[in-house]
Design a protein around this nucleic acid. Sequence first.
DNA 1: AAGTGGTCTAGACCACAAA
DNA 2: TTGTGGTCTAGACCACTTG
Lengths: 230, 230
Amino acid sequence: MESGVSWQLVRAEALRRIRTREWQPGARIPHEADLAIELGCARATVNRALRALADAGYLVRRRKGGTHVAATPVRKATFEITIIRQDVEERGQEHGYRLLEDRSAAPPAAVKHALKLAGDKPWRQLRALHLADDSSFCFEDRWVNPAIVPQEQISFETVSANEWLVRNLVYTGGELAFYAAPADPVSAARLGCAPGAALFAIDRTTFLEDEPITAVTLSYVPGYRMKTVL
Amino acid sequence: MESGVSWQLVRAEALRRIRTREWQPGARIPHEADLAIELGCARATVNRALRALADAGYLVRRRKGGTHVAATPVRKATFEITIIRQDVEERGQEHGYRLLEDRSAAPPAAVKHALKLAGDKPWRQLRALHLADDSSFCFEDRWVNPAIVPQEQISFETVSANEWLVRNLVYTGGELAFYAAPADPVSAARLGCAPGAALFAIDRTTFLEDEPITAVTLSYVPGYRMKTVL
DNA sequence: AAGTGGTCTAGACCACAAA
DNA sequence: TTGTGGTCTAGACCACTTG
């Protein structure tokens, strides 16, 4: 009963064969069963290794069709979407927060579209500024479903909506977009930069099943970089 | 021998308990063995389900320490890093490509730092423009290790360095950063936008073991959005 | 020292898709 | 129809960490 061949080892060996072109792009590779015999392990071990490579985009697997090396390599980059306060603190800075506005209003068309809203029911609009060591860091412009977070019930004066929502609400889906936009006069004033400056921004919507929860635009101070490792 | 309870079912049930706070944030949840008995499946099935939830950031697992609900939810967003040509074609547009420069020069300090280069050996610098339906789409400014891709050997006149490298080279690591930057006069001219316009940009470095391969800055035309689903 | 997750095995059956 | 991956099981041993 050997127990020596780990799935990581199998993964490494398969990756080696892909990289050396021993397994050509697009080509079909041996069955799990054959590989299990060749490498001296159980089929389940091979399965786990190849499944991991498929998740990472190196392989394409289909029942009956077999396993093929991906023709066009697709690398996946993952970003951790954290609470802004955590983001600041991980940079070794102190997080500050100021609620600037909290009112009830009808969302603009773009927001209604992103949230798939019909009609003109008022939503709760929140605007807040996040600080890092007393400098502006990020401007948060958010619309919240008042049925879920009534204005009378939850105040966001000390805890940001960003943090409260992440900690207290569950969501099942949503969209995320990264882009660059020139600072409008309002954002510029709040972030302490020149109007028209290039800002890195994130648009995010979240849903609970089909119920829209919130839409937010986060505009970061010029120079902000969102990094990850490959 | 029942075979009815799938790991997806176990995952769904665990997720339900997390969402309903039946399992409180930070709290320890039952052992795999107990859950297996309670849910009527093998421990391996529970293991796979909980492992999936841990990968997704919902749970934290430690040997002997047990499994805990994550105290601060961290959602992971994944972006597929594809070839630019694919990106354009997936938008239903036709991809065009023009090589603008291909020369040998010493990289600037910022690039040397990102690639961990010492000395002043010349590298190969490539500048190219990617088009979508005859409009500017993305400006590629790249430095390539000449030891890996000699200027005499590979021409990038018809195939972009982006595509050639992805298809023909393997890398083992690197970094990726997203940010916003104002268009400098050169980029502006090439992308057909006003100088100072807010451009979405990506910096990327790739290594093969400890050998630097390439560093590239991709500047996208104003309005570009990088999207993903949560 | 002991508890808990991590993994491997051998075998079985199932689901899907290609032939 | 049939080949291939997808998954489940029961049992075992191991590795890490905490008490």
